[in-house]
Amino acid sequence: MIAEASSHSDKQAQRLLRLYHLYRLSVGIILVLLISSNMDNRLLTSANDDLLRIGSWLYLVLNIVLVVFFENTRRPAQLFSLALLDIFLLCGLFYAGGGVASAIGNLLIVSVAISNTLLRRRIGLLIAALAAIGIVGSSLLLNFSHRASPNDYLQVSTLGALCFAAALLVQGLARRLEVSETLVEQKASEVIGLEALNALILQRMRTGILVLDDQRRVQLANHSALTLLGFDRLEGRLIDELLPSLVERLHLWLNNPTLRPQSLKIASSGMELQPSFIALDP
Score class of each variant (00 low, 15 high):
Ala3Gln: 14
Ala3Gly: 08
Ala5Ser: 10
Ser7Glu: 15
Ser9Tyr: 09
Ser9Val: 07
Gln14Pro: 14
Leu16Gly: 07
Leu17Asn: 11
Leu17Gln: 10
Leu22Pro: 12
Arg24Pro: 06
Arg24Asp: 05
Ile30Val: 15
Leu31Glu: 08
Val32Asn: 03
Leu33Ile: 13
Leu33Asp: 07
Leu34Gln: 10
Ile35Asp: 06
Met39Lys: 12
Asn41Glu: 14
Leu43Met: 08
Leu44Met: 08
Asp50Met: 07
Asp50Val: 12
Leu51His: 12
Arg53Gly: 01
Trp57Tyr: 11
Val61Asn: 08
Val61Gly: 04
Val67Asn: 01
Val68Ser: 02
Phe69Pro: 10
Glu71Ala: 05
Glu71Tyr: 00
Thr73Tyr: 02
Thr73Asp: 04
Arg74Lys: 09
Arg75Asp: 10
Arg75Thr: 09
Ala77Glu: 12
Gln78His: 10
Phe80Glu: 15
Asp86Tyr: 15
Leu90Ser: 08
Leu90Asn: 09
Cys91Asn: 08
Gly97Met: 11
Ile104Ala: 04
Asn106Gly: 15
Ile114Asp: 08
Ile114Phe: 07
Asn116Tyr: 12
Thr117Ile: 07
Arg120Leu: 10
Arg122Leu: 15
Ile123Val: 14
Ile123Glu: 08
Ala128Val: 10
Ala131Ile: 03
Ala132Tyr: 00
Gly134Val: 00
Gly134His: 08
Val136Leu: 14
Gly137Met: 12
Ser138Pro: 02
Ser139Asn: 11
Leu140His: 04
Leu142Trp: 06
Ser145Val: 13
His146Gln: 05
Ala148Thr: 12
Val156Asn: 02
Thr158Ala: 09
Ala166Trp: 00
Ala167Ser: 10
Leu168Val: 06
Leu169Cys: 10
Leu169His: 14
Leu169Trp: 09
Val170Cys: 11
Val170Thr: 05
Gln171Glu: 11
Leu173Asn: 07
Leu173Tyr: 13
Ala174Cys: 06
Arg175Thr: 15
Arg176Asp: 10
Arg176Tyr: 15
Glu178Ser: 05
Ser180Asp: 12
Glu181Cys: 14
Gln186Asp: 14
Val191Tyr: 13
Ile201Gln: 09
Leu202Thr: 03
Gln203Phe: 01
Gln203Arg: 12
Gln203Ile: 00
Met205Phe: 05
Arg206Lys: 11
Gly208His: 03
Ile209His: 11
Asp213Arg: 06
Asp213Cys: 13
Gln215Tyr: 05
Arg217Val: 05
Val218Pro: 01
Leu220Lys: 01
Ala221Met: 11
His223Pro: 00
Ala225Met: 00
Ala225Tyr: 09
Leu226Met: 01
Leu226Lys: 01
Thr227Gln: 09
Arg233Asp: 10
Glu235His: 04
Gly236Ile: 09
Ile239Asp: 11
Asp240Ala: 14
Asp240Gly: 13
Glu241Pro: 01
Ser245Asn: 12
Leu246Cys: 00
Val247Pro: 00
Glu248Val: 00
Glu248Asp: 03
Glu248Trp: 04
Glu248Ala: 01
Leu250Tyr: 00
His251Met: 14
Leu252Thr: 08
Leu252Ser: 08
Pro257Glu: 00
Arg260Gln: 13
Pro261Tyr: 00
Gln262Met: 02
Gln262Gly: 02
Leu264Cys: 02
Ala267Met: 06
Gly270Ile: 00
Met271Leu: 07
Ser276Leu: 03
Leu280Pro: 01
Leu280Cys: 03
Leu280Arg: 03
